[in-house]
Design a protein around this nucleic acid. Structure first.
Lengths: 186, 186
DNA sequence: ACCTGAACACCGTTCAAGT
DNA sequence: ACCTGAACACCGTTCAAGT
């Protein structure tokens, strides 16, 4: 594929290079630390260049959030299918560990800055990711929906509170074990 | 207290006036829509004036988040004390409804921009607010802690997912009833 | 077709100077 | 003690011009 070249982008795959560098910066510095001009500098291109590939900073962030949801989906689909109780616990743990392992990306996925109204790409990626969770509910009964939503809320809340440092981890306590206990609780 | 004056701030209570205007703007436009210069303009003061009262924009946001946690605390303390099962449900509903009624303020309280590390004021206000929830747990047993954290996570997650428009409200469905069902589920 | 250079209209923040 | 005016070092974004 790659014809050897010493003037790396300037022509070819700038969009891809921007996305990769942006993801690295995001994971390290968070959304607030990801400036378009810094990004352009990091990739060795003029400040205006990214605008040939993304309409705005928000569009760039949206693209990152979409790949976040895709990775989330992949993590969920990698769970081996077992019977309901074990499956549900496995999904819960995967959900929370994904959030912890990809903190700034996870935060971006749920950032209020990126209103999912009017960003259909993001909405679709998020819906696809959460469709993955539908296996939890035992069908479409009314109480099945309540059970599913309650489980989802618990797991999502746990992820968010841990990310926020709101849940105190005691000295020498195993975070993963605590997650398992909470997830498996009913 | 108030000596009648037609040159409103310029001397007296600018800090208070800034906080009130900031809260109004925050609730209407969200954190991203709250600029220090806009705020100064709204209050009729120079762009540099707020810096006599707040070290930075982040410090202003922190002050708003602190009042958010105080209001949250007040809402929780206003719940009449009953026996455990009803009390827990009432707290859960209050928690979620507070988030829905104060969307942008609630988001700010948990904004990753305001790292609670190194902002001891925020951390203290948050801790005070959540101490209010300790009534849930039936003591300090190990499983009591798990039950309490699981309940907290469920309620917080429900608030966040609803705020984010992630939980689909069906046509003609009563949001408050749905909240009650999820909160009361176990 | 894709990128650069220079500009525009903003920011948050600082600081000397005013009252 | 508290506020203003002007400046500094940035932003995101646009647009004519280059290749």
């Amino acid at each position: 594929m790659s014809t050897s070249s010493n003037a790396p982008y300037h022509h070819g795959n700038l969009r891809q290079a921007l996305l990769e560098a942006a993801l690295t910066i995001l994971q390290r510095d968070g959304e607030a630390g990801l400036g378009l001009r810094d990004l352009a500098r990091a990739v060795g291109v003029s400040a205006a260049a990214p605008y040939r590939h993304f309409d705005s900073r928000a569009a760039l962030l949206e693209a990152l959030a979409v790949t976040g949801f895709q990775r989330f989906t992949a993590a969920m689909e990698a769970i081996p299918l077992t019977n309901p109780p074990d499956l549900m616990a496995a999904m819960g743990k995967t959900y929370v560990l994904f959030a912890l392992d990809n903190a700034n990306l996870f935060r971006l996925m749920f950032s209020p800055q990126l209103k999912k109204d009017g960003r259909p790409g993001l909405r679709m990626a998020a819906d696809a990711a959460f469709d993955t969770l539908r296996h939890i509910s035992g069908g479409d009964t009314k109480t099945g929906r309540i059970v599913a939503l309650a489980a989802w809320a618990k797991v999502h809340g746990l992820a968010v509170l841990l990310l926020d440092g709101q849940i105190a981890i005691r000295a020498g306590e195993d975070t993963e074990a605590l997650i398992a206990e909470i997830v498996e609780h009913l």
